[in-house]
């Protein structure tokens, strides 16, 4: 991944970028690399090594010999369905979450001037971003469940029975709604600082130059925010993809997502098949890698466009 977009171009990063653009040993920036050592040491010891043992099991059969046969085990309708379910809910909640988070960030950051409100919303989103699993599922059951507050209120005050009309909280749409409770705050938290910078730097400049609101957004605002928006999309997708507790707590066995299958294999219950669990984990890592690569490609292109 050479930064060819800046290679040779005049600008602050021109010369240095040119130097690090090649990959020969002499021109690798050793002091800078050293500064990143703590992170990589931590990541390798505390993250890669523990996971490597699990992932290695994917290539091992029950007797301990090397094999690729385990991968055949995931070619089942159940795994395919679970994968589609996981992909669907991750994609839908990532897009919805990012859009709504962006709207909220723009509303709170630019169109409302109260610092107190902004601070309250920021801290609320910090907490809400990890409100998940059983407490979140119960909160939604208490609101929209069969005897939830809103359900009962709608029935008593307006005679509307949402369950008779076909609504079901323990379904894909109910799960999407519940997921948004933490997806939107994460998107907001990521996008908010970027929106902050947007306000101070560019608004006045654009107004001075006579740009309309649409022109401003098309040529200044959105391009500046775009990398952050992409980052939020990727993070939200990963967040939903790897999550299991909320789906389990809300929909039980009605919606199968990949992590539920994974957990069943790893936790050593009746279904216990460590190799299958490892293959599923590897599959998830692969999906994440593809997602990240896509995100990086899009981002490099957008940063090029910005310059």
């Amino acid at each position: 991944m050479k930064p060819q977009s800046t290679h040779g171009k005049p600008g602050a990063s021109g010369i240095r970028a040119g130097l690090t653009g090649t990959s020969s040993l002499k021109s690798i920036d050793w002091p800078a690399l050293l500064a990143t050592a703590p992170f990589f040491m931590f990541a390798i010891v505390m993250m890669v090594m523990p996971t490597a043992a699990l992932l290695a099991t994917a290539f091992v059969d029950k007797q301990g010999g090397f094999t690729l046969a385990n991968f055949a085990e995931i070619v089942t309708p159940e795994v395919a369905d679970a994968f589609m379910a996981s992909a669907k809910i991750s994609a839908v909640t990532a897009v919805l979450g990012t859009v709504l988070g962006l709207v909220l960030a723009l509303t709170v950051g630019r169109r409302m001037t109260s610092q107190k409100v902004k601070a309250a919303v920021m801290s609320f989103c910090g907490v809400a971003s990890h409100f998940s699993g059983i407490p979140l599922a119960f909160a939604f059951i208490a609101t929209l469940g069969r005897l939830g507050l809103v359900t009962v209120f709608l029935r008593k005050a307006f005679g509307i029975d949402i369950y008779a009309a076909g609504f079901e909280l323990a379904s894909f749409s109910g799960l999407t709604l519940t997921y948004l409770f933490f997806q939107v705050p994460i998107a907001f938290t990521i996008i908010m600082p970027a929106v902050d910078r947007l306000s101070t730097q560019t608004r006045e400049a654009a107004e001075m130059l006579g740009a309309t609101a649409t022109q401003y957004w098309r040529f200044v605002g959105l391009p500046i925010l775009w990398p952050t928006i992409l980052g939020a999309l990727a993070l939200l997708f990963a967040n939903a993809f790897g999550g299991v507790a909320t789906a389990y707590a809300l929909t039980g066995t009605a919606v199968n997502v990949i992590p539920i299958l994974l957990y069943a294999q790893i936790r050593g219950d009746v279904l216990h098949n460590e190799q299958l669990g490892a293959v599923l984990a590897l599959l998830m890592v692969f999906v994440m890698t593809v997602t990240i690569s896509l995100y990086l490609m899009l981002r490099v292109r957008s940063e090029r466009w910005m310059k």
Partner: peptide, 13 residues
């Protein structure tokens, strides 16, 4: 690297 923790179950860690 930083996306890995999102798909690795904490119990594996």
């Amino acid at each position: 690297f930083v996306m890995l923790p999102m798909v690795v179950p904490p119990i594996v860690l």
